[in-house]
Write a protein that binds this DNA or RNA. Structure first.
Lengths: 199, 199
DNA sequence: AAATCAACCGAATGATCGGTCGGCTTTTTA
DNA sequence: TAAAAAGCCGACCGATCATTCGGTTGATTT
C-alpha cells in the first residue's frame, strides 16, 4: 500500500478514536512510520487531511447506495422503507470507524465554516434521508403507507435508525438485537389503516 | 456570582462548543477574567473541571425528573410514554448547552476509563430510559400498550426522541416542528391492537 | 548520462498546551 | 486583633502542538 493510503487509513482510525482536536500529527506519524514531513507532503494541513477522509467516506456511502438500489428487490413503498432501514444498519455495521467519525460533533462544527465539509456531509445525509422519504412517498401512492407528512416522518425514521446505529457505534448495545423490533415498529408507524389488524 | 461558578458556567459553554480537547484553559481564563492559577485552585485539573460540570448536569436532570413525576397527571401507560417524550424534548430545549455536551463523544470516551464519569452518564441515561420503559410496562398492564419487549422498545423510543433532540441541538431542524408527528408515531408504534382503528 | 520530479525524511520552529508555585489580598476564625 | 484560611493572581515550566524546510533518495524523462 502506498504511504499516502496508509496515512489516510490510520488517520481515519485516529480521528474517530480521539476526535479532530485530540488527534495529533505526531501520533499519526508514529502509527504509520511516515515522517512528519511526509504527511504534509501529501496533505496541505490537518484540515485538508480530514476533508480527504470525509470525501472518501462520502464516496463509499454513495457508491454503496447506488449498488443497493440496483440490487434492490423492492415491491412496494413499505418494502422500500424497510430496505432503507436495513441498508442503513448494514452500512453502519460494515464501516464502524467511519460512522464513529460521522457521529462526532467536529464534522458539523467544521461544516459551519468550511463549505467543502458542509457539502460532503449534506451529500451523505441527503442520500440516506431521501431514501426514507422516497419509500414513504412511493408507499403512499401504492397504498401501503398512510397519508403522513413524508419529509417529517422520514426525519423521524432517520433519527430512530441513526440512534440505534449509534448504540452500536458507541458499543453500548448490539443494534442487531433490536432489528426485529425496529422493523416491526416501522411497519406499525407507517402502515395505512387499511392494513392494520383489527381488534 | 462567585468566580468558581463563573468558571463552571463558562467552561460548560466552552466544552460544548469546542469539545474537551478543543477547549483550552487559557481561553477559559480569558472568558472569565480569572487567572490561570485560579481555575486550578478551584479544580484540581481539566478532567476534574469537566466532571464537576457533568455532575451538575446530572443533578439538574434528576431533579427535573423528580419534579416532573410529582406534577405528572398520568392516567395510563400510553400517557406516561407520551409524557416521557414531552419531558425529554422540553428538557433538551431548556438546556441546549448541556445537551450539546451530552451529545458529544468525549464523555463516553472518558467513561471508558473514568468510573466517576461513567456513573454520572449512567445515572442520566438510566433515568431517561427507564422513564420510557416504565410507561410501556404500565401500559401493558392497563391494556393501552401492546405486548412488546419493553426494554428493547424503550431503547428504540429513546433513540428516536434523542435523535430528534439532536437535530435541535445541532440546529439542523426545529424539533418542535416534528412534535405532533412524533407523538402520533409513538402511539401507533405501541398501541395495543384493541385500540387500533379499523380499516 | 544529465536533468527533472515526486516521495520521503527528520531536525527545527514558534505557539500553545495543561499545570505549578510563591506571594498578595480578603474573609473567617479564635 | 492576631492568626489562619481561602480566594486569587500571573509569571513560569516542560511537553506537545501543527507546520516548515533543506536535503536525500529512487524512478522517470530528456
Amino acid at each position: 500500500m502506498s504511504k499516502k493510503n496508509a496515512i489516510l487509513l490510520a488517520a481515519t482510525e485516529l480521528f474517530s478514536q480521539k476526535g479532530y482536536e485530540g488527534a495529533s500529527m505526531a501520533e499519526l506519524s508514529r502509527m504509520t512510520g511516515a515522517a512528519g514531513g511526509t504527511i504534509f507532503h501529501h496533505f496541505k494541513n490537518k484540515e485538508d487531511l480530514f476533508l480527504n477522509i470525509l470525501r472518501g467516506i462520502k464516496e463509499i456511502i454513495l457508491n454503496s447506495f447506488d449498488q443497493y438500489l440496483e440490487d434492490g428487490n423492492l415491491k412496494n413503498g413499505m418494502d422500500m422503507v424497510e430496505g432503507a432501514v436495513s441498508f442503513y444498519l448494514q452500512l453502519a455495521s460494515q464501516m464502524p470507524t467511519q460512522f464513529l467519525l460521522l457521529h462526532q460533533h467536529f464534522p458539523y462544527k467544521m461544516a459551519e465554516t468550511n463549505p467543502v465539509c458542509r457539502d460532503y456531509l449534506e451529500s451523505i445525509y441527503n442520500c440516506l434521508l431521501d431514501n426514507f422519504e422516497k419509500g414513504i412517498v412511493k408507499g403512499q401512492k401504492d397504498g401501503t403507507i398512510e397519508n403522513v407528512p413524508a419529509r417529517k416522518c422520514a426525519m423521524i425514521l432517520f433519527s430512530m435508525v441513526d440512534g440505534i446505529a449509534r448504540f452500536n457505534t458507541y458499543q453500548l448495545y448490539n443494534a442487531g438485537a433490536l432489528y426485529d423490533e425496529l422493523i416491526m415498529m416501522c411497519r406499525k408507524m407507517l402502515r395505512s389503516d387499511a392494513y392494520a389488524p383489527r381488534g
